[in-house]
Amino acid sequence: MAKTQRLLRYARAEPVQLEPAAPISVTELVDRIGRGDRWAEEAFYRRHVGLVQATVRRLLGRNAEAEDVVQDAFVTAFEIWDQLREPEHAKNWLLTIAVRKVHRRFRRRRLLRLLGLDQPTDDATLETLARADLSGEARAELSLLDRVLKSVPADARIAWMLRYVEGASLEEVAALCECSLATAKRRIAAAHARVAEHVSLPELSHE
């Protein structure tokens, strides 16, 4: 009898309204991850995986390699979490790790190519990643850009893409590539000179 009444009371009850949790600050997230909070780790991952995945995929131009690098970057980040000195720059720190791994991938590709073992499967070119509503001419230019970038050395290509594709500032490019500002500028200029021979992309300031 008492059980039936309890069930009726539940049935008549109004649905509970769940309020979305207030976004947790980066500092707190970093702190909680440092204390071994698994939920914080996943939250951090979900907050940044889109950016990291998209950047790495565009830099590498290969889906499988990009996914592997993204996994590796997050694993490494969580392993060396105690080396993160500035919690507010956690995103750039994570991207730096990812870009470092992209550099490594390019070196590995070059070695495999020398040994005749690299099988090009560029299935994530700029053209294939273009928005659906992009015009045919723009797609054609992206395709041409893809071909030109293939002939650009990896260091210059990465620096140029961070600047012209991702829209990073020169200082950010230098930080992500872990090189000096001058080196970053030189790399970007070198790549852009090559690009400009084929695609008339408005030049961004190199200063």
Partner: peptide, 15 residues
């Protein structure tokens, strides 16, 4: 050119 930097704005590749 039809392209403008940053080019990511012309791309649609979020996971």
């Amino acid at each position: 050119s039809k392209l403008r930097a940053p080019l990511r704005l012309t791309l649609d590749d979020l996971p």
